[in-house]
Structure formats: structure tokens, C-alpha cells
């Protein structure tokens, strides 16, 4: 299966090269491989199916233009980065349409938003999956939302704030609270640092 995965990964890179050269068959293949899960993942983050559809379409239209910029990283992660940014943009546009006279949003400084390994990352990476899963179930939904945007989706604080429609300060404070609650919940689940949940 590992060999199969390698082959698929290489296949994605080759497909992106062909897409960069304008090959529609390669784009169709890439779309069939990735559009489904991107759609499902976007649907979990946005309740409006029309927005999901637009974001998905924007994502692949962007791929036409920026496939040449793909530098051999995992195609799935690369696609999701585009889709997540598009989703943030769509939310921003919605918000702008909703409140015409809002405070001006400063332009997003592109590049360099690679999030450093946060405390949440370390928590997620360092503990047994089942424990974290159970602990995550215990924290409140709005804290989970913040964790998902920053940790799972790799968004910056500012992007997460736009996606969730809350101020940046709230994102930061909720991330702090989520970490604290996660720690508490893990303590309840797993009193001994070495013992695991059954």
C-alpha cells in the first residue's frame, strides 16, 4: 500500500505539471481524485452549499493558474491550502456585503503564514489519538471550531478570525481556553501520564 501511495503521490505531481501546461485531461483526473474530499471538508466548515460550490470551483480555477507554482509538496495539502484561503475570502466577501459600513480590512500579507508548531499541535501530536479525541469531545463547540481552524486547517489567527466571523483577540483567547480545557479534560481522562485509556 505504501508503494501504491508513493505512486499516487508522484501521479499527483505529474498531473499538476500537465495542468500547468494546460492539459484538460490532467485537470479532469486531478479533479476526480481530489474534488470529492475537498467538497466534504468544505461542507463541514461552511453550512451554505452555494458557497461551498463556489469555493470548490474557485479552488480548481486557481489551480489552472498556479499549478506551475507547485513545488513538490503533498498535492492534497497544497490543494487544501488554496481551498481554505478561498473559503476565508468568501467569508470576507459575505461579511463585507452584510455590513456595508464596517471597519476596513487591511490586506492580507501573503506568504509567511506558515504557523509555528503551537501548543495545540504538540498536544495533538504527542498524545494517544483516542485520548485527544475523547478530550476534544468534551470541550465546547466554539473552542473546537477555533482549534480546527488554527491547528487542523493551518490558518493564521487573522484568517481564522475571518473564517469564523469573530475578532482576532477572541480567536487568541479561545485558543488559550481550548488549550486549558483540553489539558483539564486530558487530566480527567488520563490521570497517569504514562498509562493509556483502555
Amino acid at each position: 500500500m505504501g508503494g501504491q501511495r508513493e505512486k499516487d503521490g508522484a501521479g499527483d505531481a505529474a498531473l499538476l505539471r500537465a495542468v500547468a501546461a494546460g492539459d484538460p485531461a490532467a485537470m479532469a483526473d486531478l479533479y476526480d481524485r481530489h474534488a470529492g474530499w475537498l467538497h466534504a471538508r468544505l461542507t463541514r466548515r461552511c453550512a451554505d452549499p452555494e458557497v461551498v460550490r463556489e469555493v470548490l470551483q474557485d479552488t480548481f480555477v486557481t489551480v489552472w493558474r498556479s499549478a506551475a507554482g507547485h513545488r513538490g509538496e503533498e498535492a492534497g495539502g497544497w490543494l487544501w491550502t488554496i481551498a481554505a484561503r478561498r473559503l476565508v475570502d468568501a467569508r470576507r466577501a459575505q461579511e463585507r456585503a452584510a455590513r456595508v459600513a464596517g471597519p476596513p480590512l487591511e490586506p492580507e500579507p501573503h506568504g509567511g503564514y506558515e504557523p509555528a508548531a503551537s501548543a495545540e499541535d504538540r498536544v495533538l501530536a504527542g498524545l494517544e489519538y483516542g485520548d485527544v479525541g475523547a478530550a476534544l469531545d468534551r470541550i465546547s463547540p466554539e473552542l473546537r471550531e477555533v482549534l480546527r481552524a488554527t491547528v487542523v486547517d493551518g490558518l493564521s489567527t487573522r484568517e481564522a478570525a475571518r473564517l469564523l466571523g469573530i475578532p482576532e483577540g477572541t480567536v487568541k483567547s479561545r485558543a488559550r481556553r481550548a488549550r486549558a480545557e483540553l489539558r483539564t479534560a486530558l487530566g480527567h481522562l488520563n490521570p497517569s501520564p504514562l498509562g493509556g485509556m483502555a
Binding site: 474530499w37 471538508r41 492534497g76 479525541g133
Partner: peptide, 23 residues
């Protein structure tokens, strides 16, 4: 449920085979 979904989503970013199956 959410935590399982997160785990799968992270996996799909790096695993083209599972990504194609989910799609």
C-alpha cells in the same frame, strides 16, 4: 464526529490513495 474527521482530513492531505477513495 469531529475529532475523527480531523484526523482523517490531515491524513488525506498527504495520502493520495485515501484521498481518491474518499472522493
Amino acid at each position: 464526529p469531529e475529532p475523527d474527521a480531523w484526523s482523517l482530513e490531515k491524513h488525506l492531505e498527504g495520502c493520495a490513495g485515501c484521498a481518491a477513495r474518499v472522493s
